[in-house]
């Protein structure tokens, strides 16, 4: 449903992505991996319609993103940034209700329906009890879950869950271990139970192995490997992309693919 076809993008400083293709099918969970500067975040922004590709195209259900009206796209596709930093004291409910803005007419205040949707989103992310708290007083993990709630509140209730796309940029990068597990569980739940299509980019290979069914491994703006998680996460691809010798095996307790970096490879 959400597909980038041979997209390229360059900032003033130079080319960041060159001919990258990604496809997320309905209800799929796709991870975008790669070293620093490989173009992960730029790819996510292209997928979100925040940037327009110089070449290639990004489509949602076969329709180019730039042909959607801004509000219409926002009701189907939501983005959770790596960190949400606020400079003013909005409450958790305020922040969640901001997800409803694409649904409001000019000067319209949120109605009972919007409040309902926002509260259900807080429920779904386990943050309902924080409703009246100032957002800035929350812990990093709580902020991340409220940011996800605000993104969920953005979706049209009319469309089936299958039509929803959630993009997450480094969802666990700044979280402690417990908050990482919580956030991972939440993303897994959204994907499995609600069948929301999820694309996330991350540094954390083990997170990707645990959550994602499809992976795209970027290297200097091009696709180094793509496909099923167990096909992409191998010793060879990791060696090629990260220049690191790694042990890749199935963990006994979780039966999940686990990556343990061993040593830096000597540069050829």
């Amino acid at each position: 449903m959400l597909r980038a076809k041979a997209v390229s993008f360059a900032y003033d400083e130079g080319t960041v992505l060159d001919g990258v293709s990604v496809a997320a099918s309905e209800g799929g969970l796709v991870g975008v991996l790669g070293p620093n500067g490989s173009g992960k975040t730029t790819l996510l922004k292209l997928l979100a319609g925040l940037l327009t590709p110089a070449r290639g195209e990004v489509t949602l259900d076969g329709r180019r993103l730039d042909t959607f009206a801004r509000g219409a796209l926002a009701r189907r596709l939501a983005v959770v940034p790596q960190e949400t930093e606020l400079v003013f004291d909005y409450t958790v409910l305020d922040v969640t209700l901001m997800g409803r803005y694409p649904h409001l007419r000019p000067f319209e205040l949120e109605g009972p329906n919007d409040l309902d949707i926002a509260r259900r989103a807080l429920d779904a992310t386990g943050t309902a009890h924080l409703e009246a708290r100032p957002f800035r007083a929350l812990s990093g993990g709580e902020r991340q879950r409220v940011a996800i709630a605000s993104a969920l509140a953005q979706f049209d209730t009319g469309i089936s869950n299958l039509g929803r796309v959630l993009l997450l940029d480094e969802p666990t990068a700044s979280l402690d271990l417990a908050a990482q597990l919580e956030t991972m569980a939440l993303i897994a739940r959204l994907s499995e139970e609600q069948r929301t299509t999820v694309v996330l980019c991350t540094h954390d290979l083990n997170l990707a192995a645990r959550l994602c069914d499809q992976l795209v491994l970027l290297r200097k703006g091009t696709v180094a490997a793509a496909g099923r998680t167990d096909q992409v996460l191998t010793r060879d691809t990791i060696a090629a992309v990260y220049n690191v010798d790694a042990d890749v095996h199935r963990h006994e307790a979780t039966d999940q693919l686990t990556v343990l970096p061993l040593r830096r490879k000597e540069s050829p």
């Binding site: 922004k45 979100a48 925040l50 801004r70 509000g71 796209l73 926002a74 009701r75 596709l77 939501a78 983005v79 940034p81 949400t84 930093e85 606020l86 400079v87 003013f88 909005y90 305020d94 922040v95 901001m98 997800g99 803005y101 694409p102 409001l104 000019p106 953005q154």
Partner: peptide, 23 residues
Amino acid sequence: AGLPRALNLLTLGTDSAAARGID
């Protein structure tokens, strides 16, 4: 008069605002 809602979103950051349909 036409700004306040967009200003709320701008304080979330420009990308978050754009992702919620703000120009």
